[in-house]
Design a protein around this nucleic acid. Structure first.
Lengths: 164, 164
DNA sequence: GGTAGATAGTTGCATCTGATACTATCTCGC
DNA sequence: GCGAGATAGTATCAGATGCAACTATCTACC
């Protein structure tokens, strides 16, 4: 005989929040994001969007804002504000684009590059601490599945695909 | 010989945003959350916190708000406002707690239960669509890894553990 | 039994976010 | 070249979020 808790409502839907993937994903992501955001904010005064721009510019070199938008998937308003914040602190420089008067080329300043080089080890240490105890193959699978979920969500949301 | 793009800055940090787990996690979670939030909002007028409360109350039965806080991990302010919104629509009922004048017992109304039963299949369909093509064992591992990341983030953030 | 500290929940506030609207510039077709 | 529509980026506004402060109630200790 299966035990039947007394006040349990007859939930016949088969839905359990704890096992619901979007819920698990959101809770895990929020926990990790809060941790990381606090670390960057407290020690370096960088928001997450600012940190992302810094990373992309350090990796790929100068580009304009719309390239940053497609590279990071962030909103163009978010990118604009993050770039303004970094420019105010002289961590990046925006120069006129002679070929297109609408856009500016955005590049890390030497100080920006230095800051990135300073933060990167900390960022990697956080990642290492988060995945400590996990098998590298599990981590690789995790990243692959996350990319897959992201893609599936984009498709379900009716997102325009690359090959239109 | 490895091709060397011309303008690539000397990024010797070993950090690549695309491969950085917190980034992958955040982007995937945002994509999924946006999809789900829009579905619930558009069709049923429920926010994500309201939907979570509904699920927990349908699963576990009536409880007070602080129990909802520890059950869902959401902020107590978020829970309070979500409960107020649901109460305004008569989807849940708050009754005085005779044993403790500070707290109220929160329970789904019959309409609330009915709405939950109506939404649950849609929620499960979204989950199924997101993980379609994935092996069930992969999904199980994914959920396990997400829980693990969440726990690791909590520990790193100095969170009080259950067994103090 | 009265006071100090803990707890339940709400309100206020400051911030972040994203959608929309707007300006400026570019491109294309004629 | 010139006007219609596309694109880069910014400004503006509404809603969500979470912290801190607050009220009310409870608990525990003297």
């Amino acid at each position: 005989m299966t035990a039947q808790p007394r006040t349990m409502p007859a939930d016949t839907t088969g839905l359990q929040l704890d096992a619901y993937l979007p819920y698990r994903l959101s809770v895990a992501s929020n926990a990790v994001s809060r941790l990381i955001a606090r670390a960057y904010e407290d020690r370096f005064g960088l928001s997450i969007p600012q940190w992302r721009l810094t990373c992309v510019l350090a990796e790929d070199g100068p580009m304009n804002q719309s390239a940053l938008v497609s590279r990071t998937g962030m909103d163009k308003v978010t990118v604009s504000r993050a770039a303004q914040g970094l420019a105010k602190r002289r961590l990046l420089v925006r120069s006129e684009n002679d070929l297109d008067g609408r856009s500016h080329v955005v590049a890390l300043s030497p100080e920006g590059l230095r800051l990135h080089a300073e933060i990167a080890p900390l960022a990697l240490a956080y990642e290492a601490a988060l995945i400590s105890g996990l098998d590298p193959s599990e981590v690789a699978l995790l990243k692959r599945l996350l990319l897959r979920l992201q893609g599936a969500a984009g498709v379900l949301a009716g997102e325009r695909t690359e090959a239109s």
